[in-house]
Design a protein around this nucleic acid. Structure first.
Lengths: 223, 223
DNA sequence: CGGCATCCACAGTGATACTG
DNA sequence: CAGTATCACTGTGGATGCCG
């Protein structure tokens, strides 16, 4: 992309990640801190042309946002992951995701959906209300690849993967999962909408917006 | 721009403001809440083609981010301003600007610079440490259009303009101004680097990063 | 299969000129 | 002042081919 050539932090940021697809590539990589294969990324980005993915990865690598690791012969695959500098884009992606979320309500319905994308709203809207307690984990299954929600130290982080030792396991439709984590649904309500849960519910209460975790208010009492 | 067609808040946000120039147009409008004329915007966005500015404004208007007001015959000009929804982009712009700021250090030097752009770092790095006190105002002059920094209620907001009743007036080179507001320079240090100040310095101490406002540490003690 | 490179039709961009 | 018109150029999306 052509540089804006402006001495401004915003313009410089857009010089690096303002290209089409770039921030969505970072979104995918944020969920795969262990590293992602080229084909993983391509499947997580429906609609991207394969030459564009290769080009963007090259640009992001040169900008110090992405690094690649050539796995040795037995595996013989390339792994892409975010650098420390790339991980710092999390706040910006959260802010943009938060701004864009209201637009989902008026979605036409022909959009593609991959279940692991709900990791982003979970990270945005959930928060750890008990930073002093020991870390906890929730495994979420909403049809596709399972997502792990990790809570601790005041932070909520999500990543692709599963963990048999998770404190809680949730299975259900994406909308119900999101409603649950944003506090619009209590656990009891969510179960009426098709949620199945196992394990210790206290981890969930810990991340739901405070007012609801305590009062167990009716759903949608606060949109 | 073609839609990503993904059921994801980030993708939806990028559908609206992911086009080239779009976020920079919002940056300009954030500083002119009273409304900006077409030519004001064009001058604040060096390098933009006039047809693109017109097209982007149309798209942003349709997306509900920008609204236009046709001023009545005596003025006979069109004013563009952000809607409430557009103002909500402030957080995302701050996050991106914060991420991009480190890139300014390695700037080539051939970038164009407009002094009112320093309003963005001031808003990002300054913060109101005395939310309970009455609002204060600092007028900043760094070569071009003067910028007003308004402090109060825990917030710091900047906009283009001047105010003869401002509590403090600062005049000096952009880098010194930024150093002052980010806490890398004390007021005394900044004066050695060419800053001129009038009025009540307590408003400035109120917005500088806490450690420095209190301890008056040496510059660059914390990068 | 994973990781691209190449090719092509087309949409978006940038510079300039022109207009009500 | 606030755009529209034009046109060369560049970036994008889709298909396909290649190579270890």
């Amino acid at each position: 992309m052509r540089s804006y050539n402006q001495l401004c932090g915003l313009a410089k940021a857009l010089d690096v990640i303002g290209d089409r697809w770039s921030l969505l590539i970072v979104r995918e990589l944020l969920l795969r801190e262990g590293g992602a294969r080229y084909t993983d990324l391509r499947e997580g980005l429906p609609g991207i042309a394969t030459n564009l993915l290769a080009e963007r990865l090259r640009e992001l690598e040169q900008a110090g946002v992405v690094e690649r690791e050539e796995a040795p012969p037995p595996v013989a695959t390339t792994l892409f992951r975010l650098t420390a500098r790339g991980l710092e884009l999390r706040d910006a992606i959260h802010a943009l995701g938060r701004w864009g979320s209201p637009l989902l309500a008026e979605a036409a319905g022909d959009e593609t959906f991959l279940s692991h994308w709900l990791a982003l709203p979970l990270e945005i809207y959930a928060s750890d209300h008990a930073p002093a307690e020991r870390p906890g984990t929730i495994e979420v299954r909403a049809g596709g690849d399972p997502v792990l929600v990790q809570v601790g130290g005041g932070e909520v982080r999500t990543r692709l993967g599963s963990d048999d030792d998770a404190d809680m396991q949730l299975t259900g439709p994406p909308k119900v999962i999101v409603g649950l984590f944003t506090g619009k649904l209590t656990l009891a309500d969510a179960k009426n909408y098709g949620l199945r849960s196992e394990g210790d519910p206290s981890v969930l209460a810990r991340v739901q917006p405070a007012a609801f975790a305590r009062t167990r208010a009716r759903p949608a009492a606060r949109a």
